[in-house]
Computed example of a mutant assay.
Amino acid sequence: MGVSFDLFGTLVTADRPADPAAAIATELEKRDVRVPDDWADAYAEPHVDAPDGAEVPLPAHVSRALASRGVEYEHNAARRAVVAAFDPTVETRPGALETVEAARELGPVGICSNCSVPELVGRTLVRSDFERDDFDAIVTSVGCGWRKPAPEMFDVTADRLGVDPADLVHVGDDPQADGGIEAVGGTALLLEDVALADVPTRLSTVKSQQS
């Protein structure tokens, strides 16, 4: 059995900009990038034709939004602006450390997190009470190209943990996104149904049922 955890809202709480478009605009201006007068509209428009379930990296979206308004800028300025705009204060949720430690006694443990901002998951973990070695794999939507509930993301997570998707238990707080594990035959433990502190007991039960 392998266990994957959603990150944001499950293991940690992390603030995000109340107005992402405005926060990114501020960071673009700091990098001498001209922000169009109708930036809010440009940001809200779709610019990348992606398959259903695919993740569109936010820097790619911002780059296309700027290009749609004829804005030219230094290479990588959009990526740097996006990363800087999402600079969270992080708190580890009560019981999260103990839950991950208990999961590690049952099999490999990973993170399976939706996140369209490069580097954000890594920076979040650094600011949390977790260590990188607490996880055998870290799978992000921006890294693998698929976004939960796409089954491909859970397949990637199971593969990196070295388990069959049907033997993967995923713990998360979003029924729609995290419940997608069931499409590949795995088991969802949703925090709307079980408290984080009670997850270790539920994991032990699932382990016994799989044995």
Rank of each mutant, 00 (worst) to 15 (best):
G185N: 05
L196N: 12
A197P: 01
G186N: 02
A183M: 00
A183E: 14
D164Y: 07
A195C: 11
L168C: 08
V194E: 03
L196W: 07
G162S: 14
Q176I: 15
D173W: 03
P175L: 03
D167E: 01
V184F: 02
L189M: 04
A183S: 09
L191N: 14
A197K: 12
E192H: 12
V184P: 09
R160A: 05
A197G: 01
V163A: 12
H170L: 00
A166Q: 04
H170C: 05
I181E: 10
D193N: 12
D178L: 05
A166E: 03
P175C: 13
L196K: 06
A197S: 09
A166D: 02
A195P: 04
G172F: 00
G179K: 13
E192Y: 15
L191A: 07
E192T: 14
A188V: 03
G162V: 05
D198Y: 06
V169H: 07
G179W: 11
G179E: 09
L190V: 11
L168K: 15
A197L: 09
T187A: 12
G180N: 13
L189H: 05
D164M: 13
R160T: 01
G162T: 03
A166W: 07
L196R: 03
D173L: 11
V169Q: 00
V184H: 10
D193M: 05
G186M: 06
G186Q: 11
L196T: 13
G172E: 04
D174G: 02
V171L: 10
L168I: 11
V163N: 03
G186R: 03
L196Q: 13
L161Q: 02
L191T: 12
D198K: 10
G179C: 14
V184E: 02
